[in-house]
């Protein structure tokens, strides 16, 4: 038997109570599209599963005071279809639309995608690029952790699923304007893990002359999704033109440390993809800015 008990929790306190009751032997399950396979193959173990996917009050996407707030149990389908995200944070809508297949997107949740902590997880790359924060709840209370502090290694997050749960993700969309884009290379056009993901978000003043903030995230080129900070510095400090974008892309490629992978390709190949895809994704993000300006 892969697990012995399966509980359907109706709300977050009930889920946390159950976790406490089983003292480390229970863990949370949301969509389960990764976890069920990992439990079957013995990569993860749990005697008891506490299913939180039915907690409807943790499924939402809303704008609140210049922030977008997303309930951790929002599914990839909901993210991909959200008019609010398509408008304010297309990087996340596009990333969610790239996850697995329609069957997976209908069930898998953004919270689960993050806790699963695969270095190339599409929504992780997008949320890193949006410089998002996760709100984590446990019996001890609530804490806020920036996404950059959430990943500990391949398949390891700093969230203890036998004790804690993610409540929501949030990121700023104001003041000024935020543009973003997602770039992805995979071995086929659907239902494939990424060979390379790039997420970027750029915050600028109303005139779009200078960038106030730039976030570039690439993966999988390190054990955790990588923020290309050198590239971000170049984008903020240099005049916004094609040369700067190329320089930023070069910097992102320099910061990438992929390993040779039988399935994803050689390190050399993927570093080249970081350069090409960072440049293209930056350009795509800025194009949406020009589109806005022209409208």
């Amino acid at each position: 038997m892969y697990w012995e008990k399966y509980y359907l929790a109706r709300n977050a306190p009930e889920a946390l109570d159950l976790l406490a009751q089983f003292e480390g032997q229970a863990r949370l399950i949301a969509g389960g599209t990764d976890l069920v396979i990992q439990l079957r193959e013995g990569q993860k173990r749990a005697r008891v599963l506490v299913d939180i996917s039915g907690i409807e009050e943790m499924q939402y996407i809303k704008e609140d005071n210049g922030k977008i707030r997303i309930g951790a149990l929002t599914t990839h389908r909901q993210l991909a279809a959200s008019p609010l995200l398509r408008k304010t944070a297309p990087v996340l809508a596009q990333a969610a639309a790239s996850v697995g297949s329609p069957q997976i997107r209908n069930v898998g949740t953004v919270g689960g995608n993050i806790v699963n902590a695969q270095p190339a997880a599409d929504t992780a790359v997008a949320l890193m690029a949006l410089d998002a924060t996760a709100t984590i709840i446990s019996a001890a209370g609530e804490r806020e952790v920036p996404l950059t502090g959430l990943f500990a290694g391949v398949g390891k997050s700093n969230i203890d699923p036998t004790r804690e749960m993610i409540k929501e993700f949030s990121f700023d969309v104001a003041p000024g304007r935020l543009v973003s884009a997602f770039g992805r290379i995979a071995r086929r056009n659907a239902l494939a893990l990424p060979v390379l993901n790039v997420g970027v978000s750029l915050a600028c003043d109303r005139q779009a002359q200078n960038l106030q903030k730039a976030c570039v995230c690439v993966a999988p080129v390190a054990p955790v999704p990588l923020r290309a900070t050198e590239a971000e510095q170049i984008l903020i400090n240099e005049p916004l033109n094609d040369r700067t974008l190329r320089a930023a892309a070069e910097a992102a490629a320099r910061s990438a440390r992929p390993r040779d992978s039988r399935l994803r390709g050689s390190a050399e190949y993927r570093i080249e993809l970081v350069r090409v895809m960072t440049y293209r994704t930056l350009r795509n993000a800025l194009q949406s800015l020009e589109g806005d300006a022209g409208a």
Binding site: T33, V36, I37, P102, I104, N106
Partner: peptide
């Protein structure tokens, strides 16, 4: 969950039933 042969509709949406806990 990689091939879709086990697809069923749950509340109208396609789902891979092979990795969907029955409960």
């Amino acid at each position: 969950g990689e091939c879709g042969a086990c697809t069923v509709l749950i509340n109208g949406e396609p789902v891979a039933s092979c990795i969907y806990p029955a409960v």
